[in-house]
Nucleic acid binder design. Structure first.
Lengths: 252, 252
DNA sequence: CGGGTTATTGATGGTGTTCAAGGGGTGTGG
DNA sequence: CCACACCCCTTGAACACCATCAATAACCCG
């Protein structure tokens, strides 16, 4: 793991002479944000963006850090600008369900009461826009378009969650892995554009806990897909060799 | 099945002399609606309710009818005022995932694009407030509190969906059934108040498809819970004999 | 090179599925 | 009123998929 506190891929270029070099707490310049066009801030006018900018705080995290734990008071909500965050719920006996992986453009804190019902950990170095929750809620009520946009995002997430229920409830192991790869690739495309190789910042265990399987089952299925020349093992991910057969694994 | 087109438990008492006796298309009087206090209309002021009322249309359905099918153009959204609706996604090979059961106060059409991604069928006789989607969307943008309320509902649904992911992904069969009973009871309480007996308008197959199990497994687990005097079989549902042991089945 | 973590692969086993048969309720028609 | 069909549910037996257990391999930094 690299040890420099790199503010990689951030939405902020230090314009003010008072450069902020700490890992957290930098001011935000939305105009230059790379997720501006598809994050929660999309489709907001300059005035609204200005309001958001004023309560936003740029924060950076290294890989394998914790944004918050289940049960923590929900003091802030987050818009991811770089990296991947794993959201999970833990049962008391050690079982774990990964609720999702948040990537640039994603918003964390939609389904939140006063405290978080899941934990969030970084899989890679991560940059976020953090918003004080009280102020964000306040702004939402004053700025209907922001509310509207957030509702859009929440509705989309709900649909995504429902599709995942089908995967968890009614699909076999191989279908789950195929569905994961296809859906993950679709999401990456929105951030980085189409690519034959699928970056996988999460480990096998994370995929297993996301799909309701064991790490061994996931590993075996990856191995089979590679043996059958559907996938090719590449560093930090997989390359899709045969799109047709990958999609064919997933009846709908 | 009773054959009279009964407008049972509706939010509308016919005040106007022009009584509407058809099964669908009656005007709406929200002031007398029994779900007024917890449905999407909750926490709206009289003016907003008036707006809603104007675009609402009371509709009634008998049991085992279809509100809409997956793929249908999403012409309307619905607020349930009586009865139970089953939401499901069907795979091409016959597998089925029940996404949820909608009861009075619930809103259908949150996670919707231009077409529905799931089907909705009535399990009992059902009454709904139907809203033309275009008009509803329009009203939402004009009435921020309505938008806010809808976002509240969507957020809550998202949290509920995430919890269901844990159930589907990481819980054993008995835990799933226990979780279903506990969560279903909680929801019924908000409508009808606390009761030792849990009404179950859905069949075993529906529960199985909701929990990602087979009907046989669900049946066996119900049988076991009754043999162990945790549940008692009653018509149209179950009675909880031992709350403690039911809750103890569900580690968290 | 060495220690720890993560992934792979094989052997065995269990939970839940599948297949099969029968029970119980309800509505219908003789 | 009973016979019958139909649907849903229940129960038993065999099986399959995936989990578990175990050992080894690959990897990554130290």
């Amino acid at each position: 793991m690299t040890m420099n506190v790199s503010v990689q891929l951030n939405s902020v270029e230090q314009r003010a002479p008072s450069a902020c070099t700490s890992a957290t707490g930098c001011p935000v310049v939305c105009a230059q944000c790379r997720v501006r066009l598809f994050a929660v801030c999309a489709a907001l006018d300059d005035e609204e963006i200005g309001d958001l900018e004023r309560i936003a705080e740029q924060q950076s995290f290294q890989a394998k850090q914790t944004l918050f734990m289940s049960g923590d008071a929900a003091a802030a909500v987050y818009s991811i600008t770089a990296g991947t965050v794993r959201l999970q719920r833990d049962l008391s006996d050690g079982r774990r369900q990964v609720i999702g992986f948040a990537i640039p453009g994603d918003f964390i804190g939609l389904a939140m009461e006063d405290s978080f019902s899941f934990s969030a950990d970084t899989l890679t170095d991560v940059s976020v826009c953090a918003f004080d929750r009280a102020r964000f809620t306040d702004l939402m009520s004053k700025r209907p378009p922001l509310m509207g946009r957030l509702h859009q995002v929440a509705s989309h997430e709900l649909g995504f969650a429902q599709e995942h229920m089908v995967i968890l409830g009614r699909r076999r192991a191989e279908e789950r892995v195929a569905a994961f790869l296809i859906r993950w690739r679709e999401r990456l495309e929105k951030v980085s554009g189409r690519s034959a190789t699928i970056q996988l910042p999460m480990g096998r265990q994370d995929i297993a806990d996301y799909l309701g399987l064991t790490i061994e089952t996931v590993s075996r299925i990856f191995a089979r897909l590679m043996r059958e020349r559907i996938l090719l093992d590449v560093p930090q991910g997989v390359r899709v060799l045969d799109d047709q057969r990958l999609l064919a694994l997933l009846p709908d």
